[in-house]
Write a protein that binds this DNA or RNA. Structure first.
Lengths: 401, 401
DNA sequence: AATAAATAAATCACTCTTATTTATTATTGA
DNA sequence: TCAATAATAAATAAGAGTGATTTATTTATT
């Protein structure tokens, strides 16, 4: 699969002009409200440093375009009551597709990030044909739930999918050929033929990171490191409050962080901290590994196997976090995944402990936190891709179209 | 020492306005010429996407201000001959100070990056008082070489200094107290009292990385990883063609990358790939380690000691590069340092070999290259700090002042 | 004649400054 | 206690200023 196909047009460094400036300031307003909740115009002016008049003009335009709406005036303070402006839930709609080990999931979210539609399909393993068909069908179904007016406001589809699917074959116990198909197919392009909104494709773990960045609860830090534990473990790197995907779109390939060497073979994080490893352990003792792919609430993994896995995984994560923190000096590390909440909590606790115990001079060890999104992070993150690209601050927004 | 004092004002996300736009486009023009050499206005317009008229206005202004100058018209093509515009060497001047293990070095460069003045001082170890006095004295001397007109165009001083100097004491065999002074002193502020140009302070290895970015020969890649081998080993991370220093200014603390664990103690890159290690090895065999601090051309380190050191150092570097590449997906890794050229070449060769041999799935291993600046990278990088801040593209340039 | 570089004049889009309006709370004086 | 007045803050209108763009023109060359 042409994984590069998601990458923005490489382009050299471009100049800036007035429309770029306006686009940037509009995104800034929307981003500030998304981060802080409803805010009056005067407050936006103070935060952004823009003049009150400029903010007034921009926000009235955004309101007229249906992206913002007035809240109840707040009285009780000296002066004219302030009118908080909030995101209008019908401002735009986004599709998010998660391609997973055992299932496909399509969600439809509104401008506030609320899931307003969901289609789910279980499969033995993902195939390009199956994914393309499911995508087109489910988008059709979900569009039916929207009014004709709302349909015009669909701003895109994001796809969260593990990269290098063809490397799965062995782990999945499938014939090499079943996965080889992914190498050549460009499902993004195929799906794009059917729809006239933009389509984005990203590594599933990076997408999950995007969900945390856009929809995460609490204050989002400038720079953080994110791990998502799925069939494999992957992650994302957030710099300056935006997801850094690098030149090839594969930055934050955190599963490939080496955590030790035996001879010439590096042991990688993915070898110890992914559900594939846990599955193997369960199967080795004659257990039924399918429980892993049910919604995590209902997991019933033998306690001793789980304990060993958490022990190994947290050691690997601690080492990986230390390595990554040296490179990018992050404020904190976050762990989420397709895990029951109590397993995630224990994994975070042990990782934090092992990181604290590790003696490393010269860097500050970031605190380790639990993700705030949980199991649905990948689908939500997928849907956040078109949202980020169109409505959130982005350095490139300043440049010429 | 308040190492944070260099960090840019934290500030939230700011809006953009016309002066920001113009400032950005001016920097863009200067950056394009610095990267590509002399370019005619029409070519700048094509690369930047700005209209020919806009570029014409901007470049005439820059010429009038003395930052650009006309080259010889190029004939031989259809149409009016193109006039390549180049950086004017007298456009601005910058001071760069390197604080090192055994010496201080102050350089003065012109707008082209050519070193036009240099003052050097050997010391047993760096003290805040010594550094402040040397700085003020040497700036005074070097200013005498400039005309009164040129003196007005001094745009700043950059200081490249190892962070956490107080951790040196043990390695240097000095009393703890000698280095404790650094913890409290803010030499940047002290020096700033004497001069009315801006002063920047940065980790010495990150500064060296900046030299590569600004003055490096050949095409500079978007994203790369940089190691500078000095008394300690450190580095820098370049993202989107700019030096990423992170929230605390300590990103690219590449010396702290863990390369293995024994019990709870992590072995770090700095333990195997710094000259401090080599010095220890030399002293252990009764040799004279002072040769290391002479200009590297005249090194005469026993061959067997050097061979062992290069072997260990390259193994550590290979592992560190693999780890960092997983996090940030860099185009390549670069190694430079206070080293004789043949040692650097061998170190790079072995690192590349060991990285190739290392089996790691899921990432592309970056090629390893030699730095193009060499021993003077730190002082040049220091001088590049005010240059970057005032004259090169920088996302923040677009925002309101 | 064709082509390309460079520029001039007019236009357009945007933010900023200054001044005004509006709605509210705080203070004052009978 | 109550009404009149002052102070304050939000919001906006009008006009100024700045900078990129468009269109047209000039210039120098093959």
């Amino acid at each position: 699969m042409k994984e590069d196909s998601n990458t923005a047009p490489a382009s050299g460094i471009r100049g800036s002009n007035q429309s770029g400036m306006r686009a940037y300031n509009e995104r800034l307003v929307l981003s500030l409200i998304r981060q802080n909740g409803a805010l009056p115009k005067a407050e936006i002016a103070r935060i952004s440093g823009l003049s009150a008049q400029t903010v007034s003009v921009i926000m009235r335009a955004l309101e007229a375009d249906g992206f913002l709406e007035k809240g109840e005036p707040i009285r009780g303070k000296v002066g004219q009551p302030s009118v908080p402006m909030n995101l209008a839930k019908g401002g735009a709609f986004f599709f998010g597709l998660k391609v997973g080990r055992r299932s496909l999931e399509m969600i439809l979210i509104n401008f506030l990030g609320t899931v307003i539609g969901r289609v789910h399909l279980t499969h033995p393993y993902p195939t390009p044909d199956g994914v393309v068909r499911f995508t087109n069908d489910s988008i059709g179904q979900l569009l039916d739930q929207l009014t004709p007016e709302e349909r015009k406001r669909v701003a895109g589809l994001g796809i969260a999918i593990p990269f290098r699917l063809w490397d799965w074959s062995v782990a999945l116990g499938l014939e090499q050929t079943d996965m080889e198909a992914w190498r050549e197919r460009d499902i993004r392009a195929e799906i794009a033929q059917n729809w006239n909104f933009p389509i984005y494709l990203q590594n599933d773990a990076s997408a999950a990171c995007g969900a945390e960045l856009v929809f995460g609860k609490g204050e989002t830090p400038r720079d953080f490191l994110y791990f998502y534990i799925g069939f494999f473990v992957g992650g994302g790197v957030v710099l300056n409050r935006s997801l850094f995907t690098g030149r090839s779109g594969n930055a934050g390939a955190l599963g490939s962080i080496p955590i030790g060497v035996t001879g010439k073979k590096a042991r990688l994080l993915v070898d110890v901290a992914s559900l594939a490893t846990l599955e193997t352990a369960i199967i080795a003792t004659g257990g039924d590994a399918n429980i892993l792919w049910e919604p995590p609430k209902s997991w019933s993994v033998p306690a001793d196997i789980l304990r060993d896995w958490v022990d190994d995984a947290s050691s690997g994560l601690a080492f990986a976090i230390a390595a990554a923190a040296s490179v990018m000096d992050c404020e904190y590390a976050m762990i989420d995944g397709w895990l029951p909440e109590e397993v995630r909590a224990e994994l975070v606790r042990q990782t934090e402990q092992k990181l604290t115990d590790l003696e490393i001079a010269g860097i500050e060890k970031p605190p380790v936190l639990e993700g705030t999104i949980g199991t649905s992070a990948r689908a939500l993150g997928a849907a956040s891709l078109p949202l980020s690209d169109r409505f959130l601050v982005d350095q490139n927004a300043l440049l010429k179209a």
